[in-house]
Amino acid sequence: MTQISYLLFQTVLAATFLSCAAYIVFFISRKKEVRTLARWILTLSGILQTCYILSRYWMTGYAPVTSQHETITFFAWASTWAYLSFRWRYTVKNFGTFVSLLIFILLVIAASVSRGTAPLAPALQSPWLPIHAGVSLVAYGFLALAFCGGLMYLLQEKELKTKRFGYFFSRLPSLEALDQLNSHCLTAGFLFLTLGIVTGTLWAHQAWGTYWQWDPKETWSLITWFIYLIQVHQRLTVGWRGKRAAVMAILGFCAVLFTLWGVTFLLGGAHSYAR
């Protein structure tokens, strides 16, 4: 089983690499067949990722979202399926190139950390584990898409503002499409993030007897949540959009990454299980 699981992950890595490469080829050559190919490979990679996560579950007997390797893999999985679900509803030109690159990077990081399995820490033995961790990571998946959209927005806006039309102008979608993408991903991501924090407090109450104890991870989650809250609030009330929204999406994602890694490695605290 371990053997099969190991091979599965290698296949996932290879498939994602191929998909990412194909997307980049499409970005450069703009040949439609290449994009179709890239999409199919990415879908395949998404399915394989699901299989891999299931195989981990099979092996360990608990939701595979505890170790560093598992968390990042799940993060990549969430991004992949968030993208595919999104893609199913409407297309944003060349979005796949950026997203597949991000997914590939995540998987490479996942591959470079220890893939070993360990018995589940007693504190984590709870039905809340898959719910809390899963929901939070799905939120991260959507926020990762918003991050990619934000990067693309800034690139495109720069070309339009400076009126120097370079390599990206014709290859990137319209500002409106990117802003809409930002709005959608943000709404979904923020919703899941809120759910993640709420389930976290409920679990904390059950496990530690208190809803909130200002553990570094909790604090940073809250900071991240506030960054996104400001953004959602401003968008709804005064219509923050465009460049500002894109910058906020990038900032927010940096906070997400810090909450995910920075806190664990730099600050420690009660949440630092997944080393």
């Binding site: 339009l160 319209s174 500002l175 409106e176 499409a177």
Partner: peptide, 9 residues
């Protein structure tokens, strides 16, 4: 062409 890059549709 520019309008389309800004507004999409």
């Amino acid at each position: 062409q520019l309008a389309k890059k800004i507004f999409g549709s």
